[in-house]
Amino acid sequence: MTGQLQIHSAGPGVTIQDQGRPGWTAEGLSRGGAADPLALLEAAVLLGSDPANAGIEMMGMGGVFSTTQNTRFALTGARMQATVDGAPVAPNSSHLLRAGQKLRIGGAQSGVFGYLAFAGGITTDPVMGSRATHLTAGIGRVLQAGDERPLGTDKDLLAGPMRLPASDRLAGGVIRIMPGPQTDFFDADTLARFTQATFKRSPRGNRQGVRLDHDGAGFDAAGQLNIVSDVIVPGDIQMTGDGVPYVLLAECQTIGGYPRIGTVIPADLPRIAQAMPGATLQFQMLDVTTADATVQPARTQLATLRKACQPLVRDPHDIADLLGYQLISGVTPGDDLERP
């Protein structure tokens, strides 16, 4: 029997996401998938599960969830306060959720996109090879209170909780970009001003892209009103009509007519997605060879994460009912599970 994930309440941007739906650009459908795909890889490593599994993406605000079967789950991405039946659970780690227990996930304390993944993955029917919700393409929809979605079985329920170091991509910072097809539509002064400016992530942003605010003149390209529409990709930095940069994310359109000053490299794109409104961002232009050298295949990323993954040791400060534990009388030789 398949288990179910039950959604008792959900913030306004809670969707099912995986690594996306590549290969349909020519048909007008962008890849989509998690705004911070690395967070789903982190969850897969914490759970020892398939990196292609679908999980729950929560933009800014979580929700209340339960499952009909015991399963391990992991929380990654934006730091969101979470409890299981009132007991706090640590971020960037995996935990056991027993059938019927309430997992409550609050608002983002740092970062924007939080991820909730289950060991067996969410097993909705794939559409065009992926389970990712693509809101602008009308594939799937935001989850709401009362929804249920099928869950795969956790085949390793007894695996202990694991943790990964806290993500360093939740606080903005320096973003590496590379030249694109229209970089030379901008004159040298404008390009220099762009890489010297300090931007603030605007409150205006979603899975399609985020706007960046700054003090000072806009960044205009030569003949920008007459540029023929062209293929765009996630990471492209478009200058909208008034010269304000807008960084495209996973669910962007596939063709656009605004001039683009460059492209954020994939390694740094989650840092844009996760920058909270008001976080500061700066851009550093790499040459193409240097940018290309930053690419890490998923298997390399997974290998690095597996090395960093450690058993979760609970801090006594986090154990609310510490005094209720039998700390002495339960001492054993330590090999109980190995004895016949």
Partner: peptide, 14 residues
């Protein structure tokens, strides 16, 4: 022209 770390754009006219 490059278009992303995994792409090349070939443009035939302005």
């Amino acid at each position: 022209r490059p278009l992303g770390v995994d792409g090349v754009l070939v443009r035939f006219a302005a």
